[in-house]
Amino acid sequence: MIKSKTKYEASIEEIRELFSFHKLGNVKTIAPLGNGEFNSAYKVILDDGKSFALKIAPPESATVLSYEKNMMESEVFWYKMMHENTDILCPEVYVSDFSKDIVKSNCFIMQMMEGEPLWAVNFSDNEYENVQKQKIEMLTKIHRIKNDRFGYRQAGLHDTWYDALKSMAGNLVKDCNALGYKTPDGEKFISYIDKHAKLLQNVPCRMVNFDLWDSNVLYHDGKICWIDPERGFWGDPVADFITLGTGQKTPLSAKEKELEIYNETAQEKIVLSRETEIRYALAVCYLALIEEVEKYVRYEPDEPNYIRNTVDSREMYDMAFAIL
Rank of each mutant, 00 (worst) to 15 (best):
K28C: 14
N26H: 04
I30V: 15
V44C: 08
D48F: 00
L54V: 09
K43E: 10
S40E: 04
Y42L: 00
N26R: 12
F21V: 01
G25M: 03
A31I: 02
D48N: 13
L46V: 13
A41E: 06
L24Y: 07
T29F: 00
H22A: 02
K23C: 03
L46H: 02
N39Q: 03
G49P: 00
F21Y: 13
K50D: 00
D48V: 00
L46N: 10
F38R: 14
K50P: 00
E37V: 15
A31P: 00
F21A: 11
G34E: 05
G25Q: 01
D47E: 13
G25D: 09
A31N: 07
N35S: 15
N26C: 08
Y42E: 02
A53T: 12
S40N: 04
H22Y: 12
I45T: 15
L33I: 01
P32Q: 02
N35E: 14
L54S: 09
Y42K: 07
T29M: 08
K28G: 01
F52R: 04
F21L: 04
K28S: 10
K50S: 07
K23E: 14
K43H: 03
Y42W: 05
F21P: 00
D47F: 01
S40K: 10
I30K: 08
L54Q: 09
F52P: 01
Y42D: 04
D47H: 06
N39D: 10
S40P: 00
